[in-house]
Design a protein around this nucleic acid. Structure first.
Length: 237
DNA sequence: GCGACAG
DNA sequence: ATCTTGTCGC
């Protein structure tokens, strides 16, 4: 589908265009499980940015972890985002830079854990879905807070609770560590919710976030700190 | 109209 | 998302 992918999927000029693009993309989401009989090599995707940066600089990173959990590859991309951060439209801000990372990443993972929502989104198309569709790769949405819906899992590691929104279960809240806030897991692309939950649960061993997400976060921060001056927010200037 | 709101 | 030291706890 890459050849006929409309440019507006990545760079809508208006919110109205973005909403239309998301509705169209959501209809193309593949939710079947493509990983049932395979041990997937995990990858993580994240973007770092500074709060009040008038230049809209974003630093994206995607990492590949081997079966041992060691970093097998990393790719980062620094660029000026052409879309601001607007809740519900994160994909339009972060996907372009992440796609650039993916293009240069080798070896690539079989499955990407994305720092953001999957289908647990107002129009069913969070960052993980958006990225999965554009790259045509299996993804899982792993968010640290909710965009829509409610969920309150028990206090023990492994405890879960469905994320309910408008009477629908759109994902699962997972307690990965005692005393820490839960992770909100939802389908991204080509992965069932059952597999998504299993992957995330097995990945985070005692820690709140999966190693792949942590590694991507660190890589994105490294890229930012290498480009931006030290000291207090240069963005405030 | 008001409040909420991934990163 | 980012600004930041020490501090509480396994």
């Amino acid at each position: 589908m890459a050849p006929e992918t409309p440019r507006h999927w990545l760079h809508p000029a208006t919110i109205a265009e973005a909403r239309a693009a998301q509705a169209e993309m959501a209809a193309r989401l593949v939710t079947e499980d493509a990983l049932t009989a395979r041990i997937p090599r995990l990858g993580g995707a994240d973007v770092s940015a500074t709060r009040f940066d008038p230049a809209r600089r974003v630093f994206a990173a995607i990492v590949t972890l081997d079966a041992t959990g060691d970093e097998a590859a990393r790719a980062t991309e620094a660029r000026i985002a052409d879309f601001p951060y607007i809740p519900g439209y994160l994909g339009f801000r972060e996907v372009p830079a992440l796609a650039a990372c993916w293009a240069r990443l080798s070896p690539r993972p079989d499955l990407l854990l994305v720092d953001g929502q999957g289908v647990a989104h107002p129009r069913g198309l969070g960052l993980a879905c958006h990225l999965g569709l554009v790259l045509d790769v299996p993804t899982i949405g792993v968010a640290k807070s909710l965009l829509v819906g409610q969920a309150a899992p028990g206090p023990e590691p492994g405890d879960t609770a469905p994320i309910l929104w408008k009477g629908r279960a759109i994902g699962v809240a997972l307690r990965t560590r005692r005393g820490a806030g839960p992770l909100y897991v939802s389908v991204g692309h080509r992965v069932s919710l059952a597999t998504a939950l299993r992957m995330v649960r097995e990945a985070c061993d005692g820690r709140r976030l999966p190693p792949a997400i942590r590694a991507a976060h660190a890589a994105a921060n490294d890229a930012r700190r290498a480009t931006m001056p030290p000291g207090p927010d240069p963005a405030r200037a």
